[in-house]
Nucleic acid binder design. Sequence first.
DNA 1: TTGACGGTAAACAGATCTGTATAGTACGAC
DNA 2: GTCGTACTATACAGATCTGTTTACCGTCAA
Lengths: 192, 192
Amino acid sequence: MTEQSAMTPAAERVLEVVENLFYDKGIHAVGVDMIAAEAGVTKKTLYDRFGSKDVIVRLYLERRDARWREHVTAVVEQPGRFGPRRRVLLMFDALESWMAAENPRGCAFVNALAELPDPDHPARPAIGDEKQWVLDYLRQLVRDTGARNPRKLAASLFMLFEGAAVAASVDVVPGAVAGARDAARQLLDAAL
Amino acid sequence: MTEQSAMTPAAERVLEVVENLFYDKGIHAVGVDMIAAEAGVTKKTLYDRFGSKDVIVRLYLERRDARWREHVTAVVEQPGRFGPRRRVLLMFDALESWMAAENPRGCAFVNALAELPDPDHPARPAIGDEKQWVLDYLRQLVRDTGARNPRKLAASLFMLFEGAAVAASVDVVPGAVAGARDAARQLLDAAL
DNA sequence: TTGACGGTAAACAGATCTGTATAGTACGAC
DNA sequence: GTCGTACTATACAGATCTGTTTACCGTCAA
């Protein structure tokens, strides 16, 4: 996947600081000077390691995606052996804890898409990959429940999922993710 | 509300061009020089009329919100007298036609929020207002159906709504809005 | 007829943007 | 002990950012 094996200490520091900078302030609002200063690295080093800001943006998204998938799978596939129906709902528990801990400003990939309209931007594939993975993961979980029309149900759950992230970030719906989980349970039970 | 009465011809032209520029390219990616050139206006005029780019951003969102509300109410309250349950689902029809015609890059307000992290930015209220209006409008429509737990149901529909916009813009779910409407119908019928 | 208003044209200020260039230091491997 | 690697420090290039300034031209109303 993301071979972070070859990362030098300075490069590692850069990727650590952009995780917060890009997410908190937005991609365009963060210049390479700020990145270098925050990481305690010279711009020379920064360009020697990555070649361009766009590459750093791509790595930012890829690394965040990796952390996100780890979080989700850790929650959904936690030992204790929950049944398939329960595992679907655990997806929303994973989202809830992720939102509280790391995502107050909404989905980083939706936000990145807002800032990167160019379809040829090197970071664009990372955005589509994250969304496709969530959808595929939901499809697999739903299929395991034996629900009717699993693809359609997974698509509905996916939209509840993404909508809950939006609702939580704009802060107009109290308990957004919990509400989304309740709705997901209804849709799921109706299809069993 | 937005008193666009006092708008001079040049100012009107500016607001017309930023509607597309900001939405298509993103707010930070569009400079005032580009705005002035595209509107056929000098920067002097631009600053005489608006005072700052931030004000233009605020007006951009307010005007888009006004157009969006007009579109939604025109679809939902179209003559023909649909019943309350049908009117709820018409919200999703309104979203579908809006997405196809004006929203291929997702919700302008979610995108703007991604680019404007500062809670004190003058354009921020416009973002919250749009989301609050959609939620309130759904609440009213749901209440008219006599469904149980109308606030909770409206919140679920709101999340399906926002999620459908995300799903359509990232283009991983074919027929996203139609799927969201089907899920909405299920939730609605279960509460009647 | 005078003066306010809306506008053009064009230069400028000062900051910040991505990216490059030059020069030199510390260190580990072979 | 020499060579390559990773790094610092710093200056620079050229573009672009928001915003200001000066000078001038119509038009319309009091």
